[in-house]
Simulated assay, not measured.
Amino acid sequence: MKNFLKLITLSAIVAVMSACSKDDDKIKIQGHDQNQMMGIMHQMMAKLDTMKMTKDPDNDFAMMMRMHHQGAIDMANLELKSGSDATMKQMAQSIISSQQAEITQLSAFLKSHPPHGNDPDFDMMLMDNMKKSGKQADLQIINGDIDHDFAILMIGHHQSAIENSRLELIHGQEQSMKTMATNIIDAQMKEIGQFQDWLLARGNK
């Protein structure tokens, strides 16, 4: 009887290990330096690093978000060009349309709004958020599948925009920028949920 139980236990262990091995075979990882989506992310972060802060929260939020939105548009354009999933392509087109419209608004605001604030704490927190976002992106597992990588990286990209928008709501003075910050939070939280649902339905592959 003992030998029979041992045999059953051993068989169960072998079955589990075999299943794990099969699952592991399905996991693909691509180096970040070879990944197209990550390349766009790194280019965006490099541009953000060169942004000259003015200590005016509304002005600096607008400058940062304009660059941030352009990064999302560049990633979405790559999804439209090289992706294959209809849902991801639809989301990419939606992101391009909405964020291009916001870039137009941000540019108009910057043109008509000379910096006049003095809030160095906002700039410091803004930079900290961007650095944290860059580190988080570098921790993501990406596999070279355009649809997957677009979804996984856009989640972090949106989370960064949401954190910075929340800072604008606390430190900003201009109602137009505070309204945009609120709209960004609402829209991108919804999109994060859509990206997460899509990834979970695919088993994050």
Rank of each mutant, 00 (worst) to 15 (best):
H69G: 05
A187M: 06
K55D: 15
I162N: 05
L199N: 05
N164V: 13
D58A: 00
N183K: 08
Q136K: 14
L200H: 14
A187H: 00
G156R: 04
T50K: 05
H171G: 08
Q70P: 04
P114T: 04
I155D: 01
R66W: 03
A161Q: 00
I8P: 06
A101E: 09
N129G: 08
Q100S: 15
A137M: 15
D147T: 06
K135F: 11
M41N: 07
K55T: 14
I13Y: 13
K6Q: 12
T179K: 15
Q99H: 03
G71C: 04
V14D: 05
M63F: 02
T50E: 04
A137L: 15
M67A: 14
L80G: 00
T54M: 11
K52W: 00
D123C: 07
Q105M: 10
H171D: 10
A187T: 04
Q105H: 04
H148E: 04
Q140G: 07
A101G: 07
H113R: 03
L200S: 15
M180F: 06
D186K: 15
A72G: 09
K52G: 10
I96N: 03
L126R: 00
L199D: 03
E79F: 11
S160K: 07
M127P: 10
A92F: 07
K178H: 08
M177Y: 13
M177L: 12
W198S: 05
N118M: 09
P114H: 03
H68L: 05
A101V: 06
D56C: 04
I170L: 10
D121L: 12
T50Y: 01
G172R: 07
S160I: 11
T50H: 01
E163Y: 09
Q173P: 09
G156M: 06
Q70L: 05
H69F: 00
R166G: 12
E174K: 12
I27G: 08
D123N: 06
H148R: 09
I142N: 00
D33F: 12
Q175N: 10
S21Q: 11
V14W: 02
G134C: 03
I29M: 13
S112F: 01
H69S: 07
L5E: 10
A187P: 06
H68F: 01
I96A: 05
F150Q: 05
H148K: 07
D85T: 04
N35H: 02
K55R: 14
G193I: 12
Q90F: 02
Q30N: 09
L80C: 03
S133T: 12
T87F: 08
M180T: 04
A161M: 00
H171Q: 06
Q30L: 03
T182F: 00
A76H: 01
T50V: 04
R166I: 12
K135R: 10
L10N: 10
H69T: 13
Q159Y: 05
L199T: 08
N59C: 11
A76F: 12
Q188C: 02
F195M: 11
Q70Y: 00
K89L: 06
I155N: 02
A92M: 01
M75K: 03
A76C: 08
H171P: 03
M17V: 08
H42G: 11
K28C: 12
S112A: 15
A46K: 02
T54K: 07
R66K: 08
A201G: 09
I96F: 09
P120G: 05
G117N: 01
F195P: 06
I103W: 07
G203N: 01
L80H: 02
